[in-house]
Amino acid sequence: MAWNEPGGNNQDPWGGKRGNDGPPDLDEALKKFQEKLGGIFGGGNGGGGPQGGGLSSSALGLIAVAVVVIYALFGIYQINEQERAVILRLGVYSETKDAGLHWNPPLIDSVTKVNVTKVRSHSTRGEMLTQDLNIVEVNLSVQYRIGDAQSFVLRVRDPEASLAQATDSALRHVVGSTEMHEVLTEGREQIAVDIQARLQDYLNSYETGIEVDKVNVEETTPPAEVQAAFDDVNKAREDEERLKNEAETYANGIIPEARGAAQRVIEEATAYREQKVAQAEGEAKRFEQLLAEYQKAPQVTRERLYLETMQEVMANSSKVMIDVEGGNNMMYLPLDKMVGSSGGRVGTAKVTPDMIRDISNQVAEQLRRESVTTTTRRREGR
Rank of each mutant, 00 (worst) to 15 (best):
234 N>T: 14
304 R>L: 09
379 R>C: 07
41 F>G: 03
104 N>S: 10
287 F>E: 08
244 K>L: 11
158 D>F: 05
297 A>P: 01
371 S>M: 13
351 V>R: 00
104 N>A: 12
329 N>A: 12
337 K>G: 14
264 R>N: 11
380 E>V: 11
112 T>G: 00
319 K>F: 10
373 T>Q: 11
139 N>M: 06
289 Q>E: 15
275 Q>A: 12
96 T>L: 09
71 Y>H: 13
69 V>R: 00
322 I>N: 00
262 A>E: 11
8 G>E: 01
183 V>F: 01
8 G>D: 02
292 A>N: 12
333 L>H: 00
51 Q>F: 05
208 T>W: 13
26 L>I: 15
19 G>Y: 01
66 A>S: 12
377 R>F: 15
158 D>L: 03
367 L>E: 10
95 E>M: 03
302 R>V: 11
149 A>G: 02
333 L>N: 03
373 T>P: 01
183 V>A: 15
307 L>E: 13
321 M>I: 14
205 S>T: 14
130 T>M: 04
65 V>A: 09
159 P>V: 05
37 L>A: 14
202 Y>R: 10
196 Q>M: 15
365 E>R: 07
340 G>L: 05
39 G>R: 15
185 T>L: 11
58 S>I: 05
198 R>F: 00
43 G>D: 08
125 R>A: 06
301 T>H: 04
378 R>I: 14
49 G>R: 01
143 Q>V: 00
177 S>Y: 07
101 L>I: 08
318 S>A: 13
6 P>G: 06
334 P>A: 04
13 P>L: 12
351 V>C: 01
87 I>D: 05
181 H>C: 02
7 G>Q: 02
259 R>Y: 07
211 E>D: 15
215 V>A: 01
317 S>N: 12
78 Q>I: 11
46 G>D: 05
109 D>R: 01
49 G>D: 10
267 E>I: 11
133 L>K: 13
255 I>A: 05
37 L>D: 15
306 Y>F: 15
219 E>R: 15
314 M>N: 10
91 G>E: 09
346 V>K: 05
120 R>S: 04
34 Q>W: 15
192 A>H: 02
277 V>M: 14
43 G>N: 07
168 D>C: 03
93 Y>V: 07
108 I>R: 08
381 G>H: 12
8 G>M: 10
59 A>T: 05
130 T>A: 09
207 E>Q: 08
151 S>H: 06
283 E>T: 14
341 S>I: 12
327 G>A: 11
363 V>P: 04
215 V>P: 00
227 Q>P: 04
369 R>V: 04
281 E>I: 08
